[in-house]
């Protein structure tokens, strides 16, 4: 049992230590590390064991710049829309520091929040075969496995959907990397060595998330 607990604790530590890293040093990701990251992806659960995931490894600076432009453009459009409809202001209403709020709005509406793909030393384009039942779920599981392996290796990564979420942008990504019609460009995973440690992001309390037997009945109860 002691060994089991140690493994569980180590696993939970990796899960808890994962961050979305958007700033990297120039140090490249080694081939040995990349092999482990891809092996983690390959071992993900898959409906009917279809294994619909495919990966395009992108280290070329020009291709990375193109990805950054597509990601930044897509994010910028969507967040600007959220801003002009005032929904972004509603979302940030609880943030009282006006300077921080303004900086956040600028980072989001300009697309900077996703354009960093250009400066990541390595981007992995995750593709999914369409002719299977569970492609979105399978590829998402593969992505999470990669993120956890990245964390375990002391690297940093970010799961970026920005250049794939709008079909107009996804078409450009597919053209850029020659992805065939039978596959979807699902997401980009940037990987590199983080420039600095990052604090954890707040998480909702389990009390808010879990129900007992039926929706609405709290599983975790306040202690008397």
């Amino acid at each position: 049992m002691a060994d089991g607990n140690a493994l569980a604790e180590a696993t939970l530590k990796v899960i808890r230590d994962r961050r979305s890293i958007r700033e990297y040093t120039d140090e490249p990701v080694s081939d040995a590390d990349l092999d482990l990251i891809l092996e983690a992806a390959r071992q993900a659960p898959s409906g009917e064991n279809a294994q619909p995931w495919r990966f395009v490894i992108v280290r070329d600076p020009a291709a990375r710049r193109s990805l950054g432009a597509l990601a930044g453009g897509g994010s910028g459009r969507r967040f600007t829309s959220e801003f002009v409809t005032k929904k972004m202001q509603e979302r940030f209403a609880s943030l009282e520091d006006e300077a921080k709020k303004k900086a956040a709005f600028e980072k989001l509406t300009s697309g900077q929040v996703s354009a960093f793909l250009a400066s990541a030393p390595l981007n992995i384009v995750v593709c999914g075969k369409k002719d299977v039942w569970d492609m979105p779920y399978d590829t998402s599981a593969a992505i999470e496995n990669m993120l956890l392996m990245v964390t375990a290796l002391g690297l940093g990564a970010c799961w970026v959907i920005a250049p794939c979420i709008d079909i107009r942008d996804e078409e450009r990504v597919k053209t850029l990397f020659g992805i065939p019609e039978g596959f979807k460009a699902v997401s980009i995973i940037s990987v590199g060595h983080p420039t600095r440690p990052h604090r954890p992001r707040p998480r909702l309390d389990l009390k808010e998330l879990v129900f007992r037997e039926k929706w609405g009945t709290a599983y975790y109860r306040d202690e008397a």
Binding site: A62, S66, A69, L70, G72, R77, T80, V84, R172
Partner: peptide
């Protein structure tokens, strides 16, 4: 309500 952006981010 639509937003028309000045330019497309360059891919190069």
């Amino acid at each position: 309500l639509m937003v028309v952006f000045e330019a497309r981010p360059t891919l190069e």
